[in-house]
């Protein structure tokens, strides 16, 4: 995985069912991505949060996944290791019958607010 243990670490994993889990993740302030994004003003890049969702979804289903489509992904608040050192990444999936595709609904939030909401389709890699 690209960003696990680099951009974030998983502190705790709560399985709600075979298709749903909440990953308590810590955003690592020493990640090299903050050198450029932005100098002196660390902001977690939206695409790194999307990648964190992909990697959590891979952990949930136990497969390597590729993002096929993102129907909609809203960045609802600015996230950073200082604003939200720990976040819940909740993921729920539904396997589309007869395909290699999962419909994915995911959210990143903490007690205070939500940072990202994503709806899309991820496909199992060949």
């Amino acid at each position: 995985m690209l960003l696990k243990d680099k951009f974030f670490t998983v502190l705790h994993e709560e399985r709600l069912s075979a298709n749903e889990a909440i990953f308590l993740c810590e955003l690592k302030p020493d990640c090299d991505v903050y050198r450029g994004h932005f100098p002196g003003k660390p902001v977690s890049p939206g695409v790194c949060n999307i990648e964190m969702i992909r990697e959590c979804t891979e952990m949930l289903v136990g497969e390597d996944l590729q993002i096929d489509t993102i129907k909609q992904c809203r960045m609802t608040a600015v996230a950073s290791p200082s604003v939200c050192p720990k976040v819940d990444v909740s993921v729920s999936v539904a396997r589309l019958e007869g395909t290699q595709n999962y419909n994915v609904v995911a959210m990143i939030r903490d007690a205070g607010q939500s940072y990202m909401e994503l709806k899309g389709t991820f496909v199992i890699k060949d």
């Binding site: 932005f38 999307i50 096929d68 489509t69 993102i70 992904c73 960045m75 600015v78 899309g120």
Partner: peptide
């Protein structure tokens, strides 16, 4: 300017 992504919609890879 400094730019942030606010929303991604209808992305297809």
């Amino acid at each position: 300017p400094i730019g942030y992504i606010g929303e991604v919609k209808k992305f297809h890879c």
